[in-house]
């Protein structure tokens, strides 16, 4: 797995975060309390010296891990975050496509309508999934959150080039260039607080965190950030191996994203 130059990654992500705030004003970020969106917030604290200048949204289906809820409360207090919890109702029979797609997206749509955010910062990375690798830094979504992936606007030199319609919004992806190992190197260098579920407990850890219904841990002895970095340099599995919503059928991620999933 390639390790990028962390300083170059940081400069570019800070640039993109500032572009989003300066150009679109009324923006928000999605925060799942995972390693990527928490790293994004650490970067936002560097981009904006007075603190993160936009609300952070947790789409809460009520079935996240207890550790995740605690981490959310602790960090929101410590970093003075403007936290919005958007509740989405979960039914016991729901999982995978119906849960991530319909359920989470509906809650976010409702919130977007209420608050009228023009841009949403989403901490996806190209190396997570082939479909996410097709994304731009600025990705247009219509009112229904649809991603017109067959006809994406041109994007040159990190600049957004097309006009935003009244009911459109942009997904802004400041971490698109980062690899999984870059995230951990950054967490190490900047001592970014992390959800304890990422670290090995009784021989198991979570490599990618979702909610309790769809995420499974992997066998691992990595009990520290250094341990995780060592583990990643030799892995033969994909980061999202433990995320069942990707695996139900081929192209589920494509369908989810086209419908507005993060």
């Amino acid at each position: 797995m390639i390790e990028h130059d962390l300083k170059a990654l940081e400069e570019k992500s800070v640039y993109i975060l500032r572009e989003a705030k300066i150009k679109f004003g009324n923006i928000a970020a999605l925060w799942s309390m995972g390693k990527d969106s928490t790293t994004m917030l650490a970067l936002a604290r560097k981009a904006f010296p007075d603190g993160v200048p936009f609300p952070v949204i947790h789409i809460d289906n009520g079935i996240d891990f207890p550790e995740t809820y605690k981490f959310r409360e602790d960090l929101a207090r410590k970093w003075g975050l403007d936290l919005i919890v958007a509740r989405s109702a979960i039914k016991p029979e729901m999982s995978g496509f119906s849960c991530c797609g319909a359920n989470k997206t509906v809650a976010l749509k409702r919130l977007m309508k209420e608050r009228g955010f023009k841009a949403l910062i989403v901490s996806i990375r190209r190396d997570e999934h082939g479909i996410r690798a097709k994304e731009r830094y600025y990705s247009l979504r219509d009112k229904e959150f649809r991603w017109d992936y067959k006809n994406q606007p041109a994007e040159l030199w990190n600049d957004y080039t097309s006009k935003l319609g009244a009911t459109d919004h942009l997904r802004v992806h400041p971490l698109l260039d980062w690899n999984e190992i870059d995230i951990w190197n950054y967490i190490k260098r900047n001592k970014v607080p992390m959800n304890p579920l990422y670290f090995s407990h009784n021989g198991w850890r979570y490599r990618s965190l979702g909610c309790t219904h769809c995420t499974v841990p992997l066998k691992s002895g990595a009990r520290s950030v250094d341990g995780i970095i060592r583990e990643l340099s030799t892995t033969e599995t994909e980061e999202r191996s433990g995320r069942s919503q990707d695996k139900e059928k081929e192209y589920v991620m494509q369908k989810l994203r086209a419908l507005g999933y993060m």
């Binding site: 797995m1 082939g130 097709k134 994406q152 690899n179 494509q254």
Partner: peptide
């Protein structure tokens, strides 16, 4: 490995740009 859209694989053509890393 890189052409990830269903339409790209079935239609045997790249629709949009993407990136891959190697050492």
């Amino acid at each position: 490995i890189l052409d990830s859209f269903a339409e790209e694989r079935e239609g045997e053509m790249t629709i949009d740009t993407t990136r891959g890393n190697l050492v």
